Amino acid sequence: MADSREIEGLLERMGGELRELMRRRGREDAAMVGIHTGGVWIAERLHPLLELEAPLGTLDISFYRDDFTRIGMNPQVRPSELPFTVDERHIILVDDVLHTGRTIRAALNELFDYGRPASITLAVLVERSGRELPIEADVVGLQMPLAADEHVKLSGPEPLTLEVQKTA
Rank of each mutant, 00 (worst) to 15 (best):
L49A: 13
M14V: 04
R65E: 07
P79V: 07
V94H: 00
G16I: 11
L93R: 03
G72A: 08
R24D: 12
D3F: 09
L122M: 09
V164R: 14
L49Q: 12
V77D: 01
R23M: 11
F112Q: 12
D95H: 03
M1P: 00
A123W: 03
K153E: 13
H36P: 00
E163W: 11
P117V: 08
P145E: 15
E28T: 13
H90W: 06
S4A: 15
R78F: 04
P117R: 07
E158D: 11
I61N: 05
H90A: 14
P75E: 06
V97C: 05
T100R: 06
E127F: 07
P83N: 04
P55M: 15
L142D: 04
F112I: 11
D138C: 09
L160E: 02
R116W: 11
G115T: 06
G130S: 13
N74K: 11
E163D: 15
E28H: 10
L56S: 14
V97E: 05
G156V: 00
F68L: 15
A43E: 00
L18H: 08
G72N: 09
T103C: 08
S80F: 01
I120Q: 09
R19H: 12
P134E: 12
D95R: 02
P55A: 15
L46W: 00
I35A: 07
L46P: 00
E163S: 15
A147K: 12
L125H: 02
I42W: 03
V140S: 05
A137D: 11
E132F: 09
V40K: 02
G156Q: 02
L125W: 01
H90L: 06
R89A: 07
I71T: 14
E81I: 09
E51F: 01
V40Q: 00
I135C: 08
T103V: 08
P55E: 15
W41I: 03
R27P: 08
Y64E: 14
K166E: 13
L142M: 10
P157Q: 06
G141D: 05
I35F: 05
S155D: 11
